[in-house]
């Protein structure tokens, strides 16, 4: 017996502040100007793999379908090729919208599952650069596979060996000299981020 599900949301179930929140990120302010023409979806080389096309992601973000948007595959598939951004007739920087959505999903820890490799890669990259100032490709890839899919690690190791034999891979990690300076730089941004988060929290006290 199949269960009957309600497919349409009531307005009360949507997050009305979500659009404003995304629109406040640099580059995303024009999201409300979208005319839903679908040029972004047509030009995107990855839209055939997406669960929601970029046009729908923009519409859903504006309407406040927060959970659906943050949980979708689309935002992670975006490879930042900027085709949509240059083609959009309303000059919406859709790549930046995708970045803002990824950030929000990482912040809220909303992933499709914990071992989904794309956010794992982003976080590992982030951590390694914050620590050493440089990204060591080989180590990054190894860490990503260990944290997402060990089977893939075994599968990819042949490629790793081939790269190694041509001097295109090394296990020693690269680092900048002035790591103290880098820490001070990133700490300053952290402080500003925190101050901003507190401000929005107190500013929207009525919201549940």
């Amino acid at each position: 017996m199949h269960t009957i599900e309600r497919r349409i949301k009531y307005e009360a179930e949507l997050d009305s502040s979500f659009a404003d929140e995304i629109a406040s990120a640099p580059g995303c302010e024009t999201i409300l100007a979208c005319i839903q023409c679908g040029t972004c979806s047509a030009t995107c080389p990855l839209s055939i793999y997406m669960d929601y096309t970029p046009r729908r992601v923009v519409a859903m973000t504006r309407a406040g379908f927060k959970q659906e948007v943050l949980n979708c595959f689309t935002i992670w598939l975006c490879a930042s090729c900027y085709s949509c951004t240059v083609e959009c007739p309303k000059q919406i920087k859709i790549t930046d919208v995708m970045y803002a959505l990824k950030q929000r999903a990482i912040k809220d820890r909303v992933y499709r599952n914990r071992r989904f490799p794309i956010p794992v890669l982003a976080r590992e990259f982030f951590k390694s650069v914050a620590k050493r100032g440089r990204n060591s490709e080989s180590r990054l890839v190894v860490r990503m596979y260990l944290k997402s899919d060990i089977f893939q690690f075994v599968k990819q190791s042949i490629l790793g060996m081939r790269l190694w034999s041509r001097g295109r891979m090394k296990l020693r990690s690269e680092s900048i000299k002035n790591r103290k300076q880098l820490r001070a730089l990133l700490r300053s941004v952290d402080q500003r981020n925190k101050a901003k988060a507190q401000k929005t929290e107190t500013g929207s006290g009525v919201r549940v």
Partner: peptide, 22 residues
């Protein structure tokens, strides 16, 4: 001298202000 990683696409996906600062 002592250049650091640009942050690539990964940094923008986690924290863009840090990406810009880097």
């Amino acid at each position: 001298q002592d250049w650091n990683c640009c942050g690539a696409t990964a940094y923008m996906a986690v924290d863009e202000m840090k990406a810009f600062a880097l």
